[in-house]
Write a protein that binds this DNA or RNA. Sequence first.
DNA 1: GGGGCGCCTG
DNA 2: CAGGCGCCCC
Length: 620
Amino acid sequence: MEGGRSLSPREQSRCSPFAWSQVPGSGLSDPECFGDEHIQAKRARVETIVRGMFLSPAPLGPGRAHAGDGLSCPEKARGRKRKQSLPAQQGPLEPGPAGNRGGGRKGGPRVRGQLHLLRQQVRHLQERILRAVEPRAAAPGPATAGQRNGPGPGPRGVDSGHHHCRGSVGDLSGLEKHRVSEVQYLPEGPGFLPSEAQALLESLKKELTGAISQAVDSVLQKVLVDPSGHLTQLGGRFQGPVPDGRRESSPPEGGARKDPLPLEALPRRAQPPAGAPLGSLMLAKSLDPPRYPISPRMIPKPYQAPPADCPLAVAPAHIQEEQILGQLLGHGPRGCWRGSLPQDLSARSQPSSEVALQPWGAARLRPLASGQQQCPWPFTSTCLERLAFVPPVKMEPGGLQAITDTLPFPAAHISFSGNRGSHLSQPRETGTPDAEGRLGDKQLLGTGNCSFSLTLGQIQEGLNPGHLKKAKLMFFFTRYPSSNLLKAYFPDVQFNRCITSQMIKWFSNFREFYYIQMEKFARQAISDGVTNPKMLVVLRDSELFRVLNMHYNKGNDFEVPDCFLEIASLTLQEFFRAVSTGKDADPSWKKPIYKIISKLDSDIPEIFKSSSYPQELFRN
DNA sequence: GGGGCGCCTG
DNA sequence: CAGGCGCCCC
């Protein structure tokens, strides 16, 4: 960063890369380069004096002077000297500011460098002043012409070099001696002081001021330009004030890498919906105990973001991205609702149904517009969620699309071999012995098992983990898929009776789990005193959601569609009503509920028809 | 009887 | 998840 080139680097290079302490005069101005040892002597003396000044609280910006210099500790003079030698290494500091890469850590060195430079300035100024004053106090020496090293651009004595190296302000030990003898030389031409001193002081002031402002600027710039670094820095320094919890797990998270709105930390998430009665909190809150329950990985997830107008929070670019992704996933405006929704639901058995249904019919995508005001649904946060959720489905330009369109049965088996995450046994031999009867065409594989690896190289007869995963995700849209639908969405599967059964069975199992959870939470709500089913809403941060998500979307690599939340909410409410009204006494009390739910399947995004879809998820 | 679904069990 | 089984519907 050029910023680094501020005054400091220049100064340094200009006066002496060796060490500012080398030549006291150096700092004054270029021309101020003394040439002979006398100067050294004078310098030494001045330094001693300066030291004295530092020791006293008064003089020139002492605060600054000893701020980091440690000059305040005489005892450390020696050590300091060593330290002072470091300044020479400040050279490296230059790259520091320039580099500016790392946010956090960078700040330290950089600021330090600035301070150091400031200190130099101060010292130089002090020396100047001293020099200007000393003559009077001290005996105006003989002032040999030769000694005059006035402002003239005297070449630096070669020897001086070596001296200077240790002649740092701090190096007082040996200097003391010289001083006595040097005093005499010290005074430059008497006439030098008054006028020139003034000028020098002036220029020094300017320089100093400039340096300070530059330092401030650069620091500020750094801070502003690199907010992250800033935060880190502050965080490290003022741990106390740092917000709190929320960050707990984020650090290890490797940085809520996904957290696109770091500054949103505060409003973590929707506060209890304004008018939301306790009921809704039941599931949305109370039931979702710790913020970061079992799966801390959920923290960084977008739903953390307050449901409040995501549009405002999301950068335009993001919005676009969101839209694109949304389309890719077929989440278009039409959402997942099927045209023929629950109109008829109002006619279902449950008497209290109208409560929950009324809204559904009204608005498909935003069902609860009216009746649910008390329980604002998190729809608004959808975009955010989608953003981070929809795994960077890296849709290479032609990639997925092309595959979907052109290859009816992509060579899914190729990548499926990976078996990501799922525990589904390999191309399982789930074959039901009895089914072997007619494996029909593929009987070549002999066994009576239903499933079997590849056949034509692209169509897989068996079901693999990828298929299971996909099926689970599909469950978010459809709880009761028909075999035809399944066939349509698993183009790479060679369906036969057995395979179909297996897949049907999968969904049956999915439902089982789903309903069990619903019942469980419904009962819990009842025991918790909830009386109004409308208060039961499944939000993304509710425990119920977490459980379901963990089951169907373990990797959390898919964005659960809102429609699923809606269905879940409805299901929950239905269970709640049934149980609360004692209908569960009837052995088949769940059937009515099943019936209702079975009518609420949504359209599945087209992209699911791609046999490579799940893999896309996995790959990312 | 085939196809599904739900429940129970392992 | 998968098996097994009973039940229902077409």
